[in-house]
C-alpha cells in the first residue's frame, strides 16, 4: 500500500519552532483530515510536502507517483471563462489530455446531481464566479485528474452546503478508487464526519484521532469545537 510518511519533522522559522518531531501517515484509499488553529502551520506543512519550503529536520517518504495540491489562494485570469481556466489547470496538473466529458463522468459517478451546476460554472466568466464557485470547480476538476495523492487546503471554505456535500461525496468516491486524500479544514464537524482519520495540530505535533469521542476525551471538551479550543490553547502552541 502506498503511503505518505512524515517522520520526526522539524520546521523552524528563525527563532520560531513550527513543528517539532511531528509524525503523520496518509494511506492510499483513505481520507486524512488536518485540524489546527489559524497560523499553526497547516499551509506551511503542505508547502513542505510539496517541496516549496525546506524542513529543518526529519524525513518525508512519499511513495505516490502523482501529487496534486489545491492551495488556499485561487487566482484565475479575470478575462477567461472557466473552461479556459479548466484547460489551463489541466496543462499544469495532468499528464494526459482531460476533457470536460472525462471530468463530468468521474464526478457525476461519485456524486450524482453535480453535473448541472458544474456545467453552469464551466461557461461562466471567471471574474463573475464567486469564491465558493471557483473553489468547488477547482476541487472537483482536480479530483478528475489521475493523481494518487491529493492535498486540499480548506477546500470547503466559502462553499455553500450543496457544493460542500458534493465535494465530500467526490472525495469519498476518489478515496474509494484508491486515491489518498489529505484535507485541512476549520470545520471540525465535517473533518470528523468524513475522514477515516484526522490529526490535530497542537503543541507543534500532529495528534492522530479516528473518532469524535477520542478527540473530545483527549482535550476535555463536551463538544468538538470546545475540544478544538482546548487543544489550540495548550502551552507550546
Amino acid at each position: 500500500m502506498k503511503r505518505l510518511i512524515v517522520d520526526a519533522l522539524d520546521v523552524r522559522y528563525a527563532q520560531h519552532v513550527l513543528f517539532n518531531n511531528a509524525e503523520l501517515v496518509v494511506e492510499s484509499g483513505s481520507i486524512s483530515g488536518l485540524l489546527g488553529p489559524n497560523g499553526s502551520g497547516k499551509t506551511t506543512f503542505f508547502d513542505v510536502i510539496c517541496g516549496l519550503k525546506k524542513r529543518s529536520g526529519g524525513e518525508i517518504h512519499r511513495l505516490f507517483s502523482k501529487l496534486l495540491y489545491l492551495s488556499q489562494i485561487i487566482a484565475t485570469p479575470p478575462v477567461f471563462r472557466m473552461f479556459d481556466v479548466f484547460n489551463m489547470m489541466m496543462l499544469f496538473c495532468s499528464d494526459t489530455p482531460i476533457t470536460q466529458r472525462h471530468a463530468l463522468e468521474k464526478i457525476e459517478k461519485w456524486s450524482p446531481g453535480i453535473a448541472e451546476r458544474y456545467c453552469e460554472i464551466w461557461k461562466k466568466k471567471s471574474s463573475l464566479c464567486s469564491y465558493g464557485e471557483k473553489r468547488c470547480f477547482f476541487t472537483l476538476s482536480l479530483l478528475s485528474v489521475n493523481a494518487d495523492l491529493v492535498i486540499l487546503d480548506e477546500p470547503t471554505a466559502g462553499v455553500d452546503p450543496e457544493f460542500r456535500y458534493h465535494i465530500w461525496r467526490c472525495l469519498e468516491g476518489a478515496a474509494a478508487e484508491g486515491v489518498a486524500v489529505l484535507v485541512s479544514s476549520h470545520n471540525v464537524d465535517e473533518i470528523v464526519t468524513h475522514c477515516d482519520d484526522f490529526y490535530m495540530l497542537s503543541q507543534r505535533r500532529f495528534n492522530r484521532f479516528t473518532d469524535a469521542e477520542g478527540f473530545m476525551s483527549r482535550y476535555g471538551g463536551s463538544t468538538l469545537d470546545e475540544a478544538f479550543i482546548h487543544a489550540a490553547s495548550l502551552p507550546g502552541n
Partner: peptide, 8 residues
Amino acid sequence: GFLRSFVY
C-alpha cells in the same frame, strides 16, 4: 497567487 495555485 496564480503561480502558487499551479506552478510548484
